[in-house]
Nucleic acid binder design. Structure first.
Length: 241
DNA sequence: CCAGACGTTGTT
DNA sequence: GTCTGG
DNA sequence: CCAGACGTTGTT
DNA sequence: GTCTGG
């Protein structure tokens, strides 16, 4: 769940809509309709403003690579396996707990892709059908994420990486969709992005599952399966054969 | 003690 | 870095 | 998440 | 079948 998504809004639009600053690296990002693990994409984070205690942290749009690399990692390849974090255990897992305590983020997305196997999955050789899950009004989603700093050597540049939180969820019809990414509602932005530990379990109520029932889901071109393919046609609806 | 992992998803 | 397994 | 590789020696 | 890279 949530192993591929689209983010097409310009960095300056994101900065405006999230009332955030814009880093130089993020300013150079372009629309990506096929964000895959290890790819660099825009991320909204909270910055501590030590000069104004009590004021909500300033936000900033930064560029980060998908797949969280913990600070203690020997190389960045561990990030390939850290693209999602289970919300049920994220506070305890060694790979995520530090980021969860102090480096929560919002991943701006148009929507995400999900591949459905047919009814006779496994028995048929029918390829999986990708769907795009998005908000009907196209105002954009904010996926709940975490980020981390990592560098291979003390003198190397810092690499910023992120992961997306998941949960179990059911849709409007009550069907269980194994795992769904979590959304950060606009009203929860300040609390979620605050760069300090959260108080108790209250945060779980801040976040909302991004289910194909709550949002819209429609089939798209199988071309999205190949990470080399990109472009707005990937999020256009197609007829099922 | 040291060595090795540190994670998720989906499917039967 | 920190925990688990051997 | 899917697609694609899955290996070694020696040499510039 | 399973791992790595994007």
């Amino acid at each position: 769940m949530c192993g591929r998504y689209a983010t097409s809004r310009t960095p300056s639009d994101l900065a405006r809509d999230f009332e955030a600053g814009l880093s130089d690296a993020a300013a150079g990002l372009v629309a990506d309709y096929n964000v895959a693990p290890t790819d660099t994409a825009p991320l909204v984070i909270g910055r501590i403003d030590a000069s104004s205690p009590g004021v909500p942290p300033a936000r900033e749009v930064v560029a980060a690579a998908w797949g969280l690399v913990p600070s203690w990692a020997k190389d960045r390849s561990i990030g390939n396996r850290m693209i999602n974090a289970r919300s049920e255990t994220v506070a305890e897992k060694p790979a995520f707990r530090r980021a969860f305590a102090a480096r929560r983020a919002v991943v701006p997305a148009d929507g995400y892709y999900e591949w459905y196997a047919g009814q006779d999955a496994g028995t048929s050789k029918q390829p999986k059908q990708p769907f795009f899950i998005t908000d009907p009004d196209r105002s954009g989603l904010g996926l709940a994420g975490l980020y981390e700093f990592w560098r291979p050597t003390p003198d190397a540049d810092w690499l910023l990486t992120f992961t997306v939180l998941t949960t179990s969820a059911e849709d409007a019809e009550g069907r269980i969709h194994d795992r769904a990414p979590l959304l950060v509602p606009t009203t929860a932005l300040d609390e979620w992005l605050a760069p300090r530990p959260l108080d108790g379990e209250h945060w779980r109520e801040l976040l909302v599952p991004a289910t194909p029932g709550r949002l819209v889901a429609y089939p798209v071109d199988r071309a999205v399966g190949n990470v080399r393919n990109n472009g707005p046609h990937l999020v256009e609806p197609v007829a099922l054969s």
